[in-house]
Computed example of a mutant assay.
Amino acid sequence: MQITYKLSDEQLISLFQKGNSLALEELVYRHKDKLYTSIVLLVKDAFLAEDIFQDTFIKIIDTIRAERYTEKGKFLPWAMRIAHNLCVDHFRKIKRTPIVRTSDDKDIFNVLSFSESSAEEKLIIRQSHDRVRRMLDLLPEEQREVIILRHYAELSFKEIADLTKVSINTALGRMRYGLINLRKMMTEKQIAL
Rank of each mutant, 00 (worst) to 15 (best):
I99C: 04
I99A: 11
I99W: 08
I99G: 03
I99S: 08
I99M: 11
V100I: 13
V100M: 15
V100C: 14
V100T: 15
V100W: 15
R101P: 00
R101M: 04
R101E: 09
R101A: 07
R101F: 04
T102S: 12
T102P: 07
T102M: 10
S103K: 05
S103Y: 13
D104I: 08
D104W: 12
D104H: 15
D104N: 13
D105C: 05
D105T: 09
D105F: 02
K106G: 03
D107L: 08
D107R: 14
D107E: 10
D107A: 06
D107C: 15
I108Q: 10
I108D: 11
F109W: 15
F109M: 10
F109S: 04
N110H: 12
N110P: 00
N110M: 07
N110K: 14
V111E: 12
V111K: 15
V111H: 10
V111L: 13
V111G: 04
V111Y: 08
V111Q: 12
L112Y: 02
L112V: 13
L112G: 01
S113L: 13
S113K: 15
S115E: 12
S115K: 14
S115C: 03
S115Y: 10
E116L: 06
E116C: 01
E116A: 05
E116K: 13
E116R: 09
S117L: 05
S117G: 08
S117T: 04
S118T: 13
S118M: 02
S118W: 01
A119W: 02
A119E: 13
A119N: 07
A119R: 12
E120D: 05
E120I: 05
E120F: 08
E120S: 07
E121G: 00
E121N: 02
E121L: 04
E121H: 05
E121S: 04
E121K: 10
E121P: 00
E121Q: 11
K122W: 00
K122F: 00
K122N: 14
K122C: 06
K122L: 03
K122Y: 05
L123Q: 13
L123K: 14
L123W: 04
I125V: 05
R126S: 05
R126M: 02
R126Q: 04
R126H: 01
Q127V: 02
Q127T: 06
Q127W: 01
Q127H: 07
Q127K: 11
Q127R: 12
Q127A: 08
S128T: 12
S128W: 00
S128H: 02
S128V: 00
S128C: 02
S128A: 10
S128N: 12
S128F: 00
S128Y: 01
H129T: 00
H129A: 11
H129S: 05
D130H: 14
D130G: 15
D130F: 03
D130W: 07
D130C: 06
R131L: 07
R131S: 11
R131V: 03
V132Y: 07
V132I: 14
V132W: 03
V132Q: 11
R133L: 11
R133I: 03
R133K: 09
R133H: 10
R134W: 03
R134I: 01
R134A: 06
R134N: 10
R134L: 09
R134M: 09
R134F: 04
M135E: 06
L136G: 04
L136F: 08
D137V: 10
D137R: 02
D137P: 00
D137K: 08
D137H: 03
L138Y: 07
L138E: 15
L138C: 10
L138T: 12
